[in-house]
Amino acid sequence: MTQEKDLKGYWKKNLQYLSVLLSIWFTVSYGFGILLAPWLNNFKMGGFKLGFWFAQQGSIYVFVVLIFIYVYLMNRLDKKFGVNEEDV
């Protein structure tokens, strides 16, 4: 059945998006905000040490942006594979 194959493609693409977005999520929060923070603190942005800024501000902004990118990508994917919900 062709539909079966399409759904597999949809799921694979979804997992691809997830791994890319979650890698960014991990890098920014745990990478920049914690593991690399002492090193990043050697650089400054305005009055912020960079590691400190990522930990207490930047990571949160990135979280918000990541969710909206995900929403955009998935809405496009739903349409492409014809699994988008009908408008009620």
């Binding site: 977005l21 999520w25 930990a55 949160i60």
Partner: peptide, 28 residues
């Protein structure tokens, strides 16, 4: 946070980052 300084990060990231997991892995 005011008494923990940088260590307060655990709350700031910990209580917001979970929403990325919610959006991508659970809610839909």
């Amino acid at each position: 946070i005011s008494f923990m300084g940088y260590d307060g990060t655990v709350y700031l990231m910990g209580w917001t980052g979970g929403y990325v997991l919610l959006a991508l892995l659970l809610a839909p």
